[in-house]
């Protein structure tokens, strides 16, 4: 501004108009504040879309998207639950066998007792696993890694025992067709996931319990001294996680039209992958559910695209594991550069 009234400046090249400069500065400062780590995943998702739509004719069809969203539904629910646990500095490795256990319980009860009773029994089974996980971690003081790894074995064993090692068939059609129903072209499970996402997102962001979960993950001792009941809130995250896993189990059970004691074996890894790729810190307290949703999209689209390219599922496991390591390694490197 000073230059405008400075006579010495006359005859020299005029400086860019203040308005334009201000806009440029605003854009630049805005660009500078963008964290590469936060936009990395959306960029990766876009890259997958570009890659698969150029290599497969089927990828960019409405039918395929219906397919992906149906496949992603169970993972999304489990990953949302996993995010609650990890945000509070925990970890739930038992989600996969919880899904199997819920599937078997649902199947067994539904065959004799009907759809409603079956669904309620399944949800109760999930609730039970969550309560036990929560108590084991908070009351018995078993570290989450060990406690939920043990629960993985227990729930899996229980599912196989109850089912006698074989799938439970003969579920009513009114239940199994739920998975394939659509509302304005969107599969019912996907709509359910969107509702769950909205509720969970809102819970974490706008309720005090949500803030407590972040506070516990960020600093459990400070949270306790602030009058937060850390043990109860932590246990609650395990209950939420197992309940969401139970909903995921219901969707999968309907899709395969049977109670399966081996359902969901890959969900522990996939859910942790989606949560971590989505930018949630494994040390707790940091990350958003929107990032987790993006992580789910990434994992699901990757699997779908590879399927379309006829990559075998065993090879896909190798690719997913490698992608997880690469993403976290890249994140660590960027974190060091920004001095975080």
């Amino acid at each position: 501004m000073k230059s405008a009234i400075d006579p010495d400046q006359q005859g020299q090249k005029p400086p860019p108009s203040p308005g334009a400069r201000r806009i440029l500065e605003a854009v630049w400062s805005r660009l500078r504040t963008i964290d590469v780590r936060q936009i990395g995943l959306p960029i990766a998702v876009v890259a997958l879309f570009v890659l698969f739509s150029s290599t497969s004719d089927v990828f960019l069809t409405a039918r395929n998207f219906q397919n992906v969203s149906l496949q992603a539904a169970a993972l999304a629910l489990v990953a949302f639950g996993q995010a609650f646990v990890i945000l509070a500095r925990g970890l739930d490795l038992s989600v996969g066998s919880t899904v199997a256990f819920v599937s078997v319980v649902t199947g067994l009860v539904m065959v004799d007792g009907g759809v409603l009773l079956g669904v309620l029994a399944g949800l109760a089974a999930g609730l039970g696993v969550g309560v036990v996980n929560g108590l084991v971690v908070t009351r018995l003081g078993v570290v989450p890694f060990v406690g939920t790894l043990a629960m993985l074995s227990i729930a899996s064993g229980a599912a196989l025992t109850l089912a006698g090692g074989t799938p439970i068939v003969g579920l009513p059609e009114s239940f199994t067709t739920l998975a394939s129903q659509r509302i304005v072209g969107v599969p019912l499970p996907a709509i359910f996931v969107i509702i769950c996402f909205g509720v969970a997102f809102f819970f974490l962001r706008s309720t005090r319990f949500g803030r407590y979960i972040y506070a516990i993950g960020g600093n459990p001792e400070a949270a306790r001294l602030s009058g937060i009941n850390v043990a109860t809130m932590t246990a609650l995250t395990y209950v939420i996680c197992s309940l969401l896993a139970a909903f995921g189990a219901l969707i999968l059970t309907a899709r395969v039209a049977s109670g399966q004691p081996t359902l969901g074996a890959s969900l522990a890894l996939e859910s942790v992958a989606a949560v971590v790729l989505g930018g949630v810190s494994l040390f707790g307290g940091r990350g958003s559910l929107f990032g987790v949703l993006m992580g789910v999209v990434f994992v699901s689209v990757l699997g779908n695209g590879l399927n379309l390219l006829n990559v075998r599922s065993y090879t896909q496991m190798i690719i997913l594991g490698t992608a997880l390591i690469a993403a976290v390694a890249l994140d660590r490197r960027l974190a060091r550069r920004t001095g975080d």
Binding site: R211, Y214, A215, G217, G218, N219, E221, A222, A223, L225, S281, G285, R286
Partner: peptide, 9 residues
């Protein structure tokens, strides 16, 4: 830092 504040918030 250890007991008074949640640094991530």
């Amino acid at each position: 830092t250890e007991q008074g504040l949640v640094l991530t918030m």
